[in-house]
């Protein structure tokens, strides 16, 4: 199953469950209070997923390591490499 199909499958499953509760499709007389809670659920889910995404990406951007030492080390090694290569007869 492709990722796309997995998503379609998951979303339809959730959607079906939601529709069953909100519109009482199975005629099991769900109390109106439950149905009122259920109907805006997709929106809540969407909004909370959006918040989660923003928070995650924001946190990861803020904590992205800046490898200043790695850059410094590399610059040193470049100088060392050039000297050594010249000694070995390399012409830049």
């Amino acid at each position: 199953m492709t990722k796309l199909l997995e998503w379609v499958f998951g979303v339809s499953l959730l959607g079906a469950a939601w529709a069953c509760v909100t519109f009482d499709l199975l005629r099991v007389s769900i109390p109106p209070a439950y149905r009122e809670v259920a109907w805006p659920m997709p929106l809540y889910l969407l909004v909370s997923f959006g918040c989660y995404s923003l928070a995650t990406v924001g946190y990861r951007v803020a904590t992205f390591n800046d490898c200043d030492d790695a850059a410094k080390e590399l610059r040193g090694q470049i100088i060392e490499a050039k000297e050594d290569l010249r000694k070995k007869g390399f012409k830049f």
Binding site: S53, V57, V61, F64, N65, D66, C67, A70, A71
Partner: peptide, 21 residues
């Protein structure tokens, strides 16, 4: 872990992290 980048500005980091997410 200790992985990271050097020489990227905020925009580049944001795109990278966003695309990865």
């Amino acid at each position: 872990g200790d992985g990271g980048v050097y020489g990227w500005d905020l925009r580049r980091k944001l795109i990278s992290r966003g695309a990865n997410f």
